[in-house]
Design a protein around this nucleic acid. Structure first.
Lengths: 216, 216
DNA sequence: GTCTATAGATTGATAGAC
DNA sequence: GTCTATCAATCTATAGAC
């Protein structure tokens, strides 16, 4: 497929375009995470990507479009983690698999999480529509699931909102505040064992906190 | 004290200076919180403070010094909340008063919390020394207190680090992600009752999660 | 202490040769 | 598709009159 002419590729992108877009997006994600939207420069992104600055504008018309593409990519990943919520009717299994998945995402997509946090902290100037439609719908659906568990007496009665915020906050903290955590860890990244332990502890406290502890 | 000459004020600042510095710091805190360090401009800070741009440089030599002053101010407020930790030997009282205090701070110092989060997310380029010395010392002391509770069988055995991170993450989330929370709240700020309820829920889940629930 | 004017550097974006 | 050269706008910071 790589050497074929336009006729054989009616909609798809060329290999060069696809490859360069990926490199630009990956580098830009890190720069936006480290400097914020205003602090990031097209020059630094270009340098890291090993391309002249003008090429960035060839692939992404503007800095804002490049940024928006990145935020949307991250938001999609967040939402896919939601599927963990549906793995079981049992709240113990559903919640612990959701928390575990969110912790994995914090480890694997640290920069994406930071860009998202930055965007929301600054008042979501670019993706407010996502908050108002997609996130709201997702949240309302999950709230109803949790309310069902409460009504069935499966978990203690807590406002599902505060519970969800606690899960988001705690799991994303390991990405957004990774630098602080690593500093307090003697300057080293968390080991595999530490990630496992942190995940287990987070799961344990939250589940037990809403009345799902095995040993309580 | 206001009209006296230099002789009577060997160390103190003039009223004008003190007043202007306060206005500049308050306005700058909001701008840095909303735009990040790189996105903030001295012009916007000056406009909000109602001063010409050159005056900012008269009071604060550089943009970075102004920013540093703000981050340090916030960090001091954070640390003072630590005193709540010493209100009692009883972990139930100590932890719930610490969490409650942190929730109050998230409500009262939303912008400061955001500036801090921004700084840490970007790798703490300005206040890395605070992380490595002051915060580390504070954390180590609290860890020993928590380990004492565990040794005495007062709470369940959990790594104190993951517990502290959970408290920081959850409480600060209400400041840093206030925009998201308000969007999911129909666009309105949380009411007094909602703040109380959220605080109670956070306290309840965490305390019960480490084996301190009254009803569990 | 205040403020206008401006220097000097950097930015996002584009034109146009290859 | 690539990349050099460059524009127009904007930024931090300062000089100097008041």
């Amino acid at each position: 497929m790589g050497e074929m002419k336009n006729a054989a590729r009616p909609v798809g992108k060329s290999d060069i375009r696809e490859g360069n877009e990926r490199i630009i997006l990956d580098c830009a994600e890190r720069v936006f995470a480290e400097r914020g939207f205003g602090g990031a420069t097209m020059q630094e992104i270009a340098d890291r990507a090993g391309l002249p600055k003008a090429n960035l504008h060839y692939y992404f018309a503007s800095k804002e479009l490049l940024y928006r593409t990145i935020v949307e990519r991250i938001f999609t990943i967040w939402l896919e983690a939601a599927e963990s919520f549906e793995t079981s009717d049992n709240p113990q299994i559903a919640l612990s698999s959701y928390i575990t998945r969110k912790m994995e995402l914090s480890r694997d997509y640290r920069y994406g999480s930071k860009v998202w946090a930055n965007e929301v902290m600054h008042g979501a100037p670019i993706i407010q529509d996502y908050l108002e439609v997609t996130l709201r719908d997702w949240t309302d659906t999950r709230i109803r699931v949790i309310e069902g568990w409460i009504a069935a007496g499966q978990i203690r009665p807590v406002d599902p909102r505060w519970l969800l915020y606690m899960i988001w906050a705690t799991t994303q903290h390991y990405a957004d505040f990774a630098h602080q955590i690593e500093t307090l860890n003697g300057g080293a990244a968390l080991s595999d064992a530490q990630w496992r332990e942190a995940t287990d502890t987070v799961c344990g406290i939250i589940l037990r906190g809403i009345g799902l502890g095995e040993g309580a």
